[in-house]
Write a protein that binds this DNA or RNA. Structure first.
Lengths: 102, 102
DNA sequence: AGCATATTTGCACAAATATGCAAGTATAAT
DNA sequence: ATTATACTTGCATATTTGTGCAAATATGCT
C-alpha cells in the first residue's frame, strides 16, 4: 500500500525525468492551447514515432490528456495534477510531515 | 543553456524516479539524524553494493549529502534543495510563468 | 599485525529504454 | 476510390540501468 504509492510517484518522476519527455512537457507548458503530436515532435528533434511513444508514456502517467479532433490528436498538460504531485512530494521531503522523531 | 537546465532537472527527476532510490529518500526523510548506508540498505531489501550505488547517484544529483565518520558514511537528505527544485518545476508547470502566449 | 566492520568497485548479466525506419491504421480531402 | 495527412505499431538495435556476488579498500578495534 505504502509501496504502491511510492511506486506511483516514482513512475511519475521517471516519466518526467527523461530529456525529450521533459522537453515535450515544457513545450506544452508554454502553449495554452493543446498541441498536436506533429507540432510536438518538432520541439525535440526526434522521429514522429518517438514523440508518439513519449506522449503515450506521459498520458499513461496522467501528465497529459489527449483529445481527438478528426485525424489529429491534441495533447494538453495536466497542470493541476502534476503540480500538486510535485508539491506534495516537496512538502513531504521538506517537512518530514507529521512523523516527528528528532 | 536552456537545454542544460532541462537536462539538469531531468537528471534530478530521474534520480528520484526509481523505486529503491525513492525508498531511500523516504527513509532519510523520516529520520532527522543522518543514516549510514548499512541501515539504509535494510529499508529496501537490496545488497549493500546496490544501496551504495543508489546513494552515489543521489549524491551526484545533490539530493543527499555525505559525511564520513570513521569507517561509516552517513547520508542526510538535502531537503531544501530537493523541495525547492520540485516547487520550481511545479510553479513553472502550473503558471506557465511569465511567458504569456495563447 | 591481524581481524572485524563498513562501504565501494569490477565483473557479469538480465531487463528496460530510447530510437529510427518501415509498414499499418484512421480519418479527411479530392 | 484514391490520395494525403496524422499518427501508431512492429521490428531491430544500441545503450543504459539495476542487480548480486566476490574482491578490494578503508578504517577502527584488540
Amino acid at each position: 500500500m505504502k509501496e504502491l504509492e511510492t511506486q506511483k510517484i516514482a513512475d511519475l518522476l521517471k516519466a518526467l525525468g527523461e530529456f525529450n519527455r521533459l522537453s515535450l512537457v515544457y513545450e506544452l507548458c508554454q502553449c495554452n492551447t493543446p498541441q498536436n503530436a506533429m507540432c510536438l515532435c518538432n520541439c525535440c528533434s526526434v522521429d514522429a514515432s518517438v514523440a508518439s511513444r513519449h506522449l503515450k508514456v506521459l498520458k499513461q502517467e496522467g501528465i497529459v490528456t489527449l483529445e481527438k479532433n478528426g485525424r489529429e490528436r491534441t495533447y494538453a498538460l495536466n497542470r493541476g495534477y502534476v503540480a500538486k504531485s510535485l508539491r506534495l512530494l516537496a512538502d513531504k521531503i521538506e517537512n518530514n510531515n507529521g512523523d516527528s522523531d528528532e
